[in-house]
Design a protein around this nucleic acid. Structure first.
Lengths: 249, 249
DNA sequence: CCAATAGTGTCTGTGAGACAGTATTAC
DNA sequence: GTAATACTGTCTCACAGACACTATTGG
């Protein structure tokens, strides 16, 4: 471990960011109805070699005076104009030959961003072509630059696992929400998720001392919302509690 | 992304490996008894600057023609003399100043290794001082080099989560094992784990179509073992099934 | 018989899963 | 009334949790 500098060192250490957002679908319903969403990812079109013209994940090189998380945070802020988003490390991509420019080891992060942030970015930036794509479009119809398809696949798997095992759903929800909204968000990210008795289970005794709690108003009465339904629905919020999952219990 | 080589680049990209093993405790019981284990980690004592004399995780620098996983695999094989162990990526450690030698970004992995492999290594290598330490010793009593204490803490958390959420327990078990053995392994890694009705739950109807299956002999009769108990116990093996955990179900 | 592990019996309460039915309210 | 969502009723079966009890067998 003390032969530093005798060997060849990498040519660059970028951080690439998978920026997820939920976009709201247009719905033509005669009465109020629950929003439906699409999970989308932000990509930028490369203008120069290599992979000129291909879509790629936004990213940038790390500098000596910052950690990789700080690199990612800086890039995310540069891309969105907003700070404070959920940003999480995904992994390292270091396969030889992954970047024709040389020995370049990329660190992937994923971020959860509100729709309006990316839309603003999309319209504001005339220097760079920016696009929002569904997972299917990005994974099956585009030829992404570098190994970004692999990164995106990993990120997709990760966000799906996180959606079911953690409370990151809150990143896509207002502080208070109805169970219908929560269900829509989960289903958007994990289409296979189907729980017939979702309300039952999430409000059952065990879960009641759990991840969600009812929102009460000043007088202690349950707070309702009829934003998405005729019949008002109970508002919930996430607690600080994160359950420990186990396959053995 | 096309300004490569104009900027300063890192001075080295090592992979550091947290090598976990279970060591068998001596037990003085009058009859056959279940083995008790300690979770231990392998450290090596540094001989040169920086942190000369301090204990550190084994590791080595990545080369241009290999991915970081391959670096880790190579280092693991060099350290143990054995290939094919469970080896998993843990994360990147890139805080500025973490290594006085320069801009050095480390990638941590953790590996699960059998006790005998490390014991052989320990006695065979007279060039390097090698030690096996319990988590408590390593985290509370030693001053580890670099940020290796932080890495070790992360690895400990990770292996505990993995032990409960995946079937890596099988890495510490023979292909066929009794439920008592499995319970000991889980409890060694996750001391908080306590399930009064462990056998009940793991063999209940739902779990029966689950992660474990009974081992049968050629004639279809259940296979038993009395290695650790007077009364023979049913042998089990892990299936290929890995359940999807969710906080919403 | 004893020690040590490997189970089973039993009881209560609660959840899972399926699906029908009722509630609410803007339009 | 209708549409859309938000629940509640009801039923069966299985599991969770607690703890006592029986089973096995080498020494």
């Amino acid at each position: 471990m003390n032969e530093v500098k005798k060997y060849r060192t990498p040519d660059g250490i970028p951080a690439d960011i998978v920026m997820f957002t939920l976009t709201r679908q247009e719905r033509k319903a005669v009465t109020k109805s629950l929003p439906r969403f699409d999970l989308k990812v932000m990509l930028i079109r490369r203008r120069s070699w290599p992979f000129a013209g291909a879509w790629a994940l936004p990213g940038g090189f790390s500098q000596e005076n910052e950690s990789l998380y700080e690199t990612a945070r800086r890039e995310l802020k540069e891309e969105t104009g907003v700070d404070g988003h959920h940003l999480e490390y995904l992994g390292v991509y270091s396969k030889p030959g992954r970047d024709p420019r040389g020995w370049i080891i990329s660190h992937a992060f994923f971020a959860l961003v509100e729709e309006w942030v990316l839309e603003k970015r999309q319209s504001a930036d005339d220097a760079q072509e920016v696009g929002l794509f569904t997972m299917q479009e990005a994974l099956e119809e585009l030829d992404l630059a570098f190994d970004h398809r692999e990164i995106l696949e990993d990120a997709y798997r990760r966000i799906q696992a996180q959606m079911l095992q953690t409370t990151i759903a809150k990143q896509f929800l207002p502080p208070q929400f109805t169970l219908g909204e929560l269900y829509q968000v989960i289903q958007t990210v994990v289409p296979d998720f189907a729980e017939l008795n979702f309300i039952r289970k999430i409000t059952s005794t065990r879960s009641r001392q759990g991840i969600l709690e009812e929102v009460l108003d000043e007088t202690g009465k349950p707070m309702l919302s009829n934003q998405y339904s005729q019949r008002p629905a109970q508002l919930y919020r996430f607690t600080d509690f994160t359950p420990q999952l186990s396959i053995y219990t």
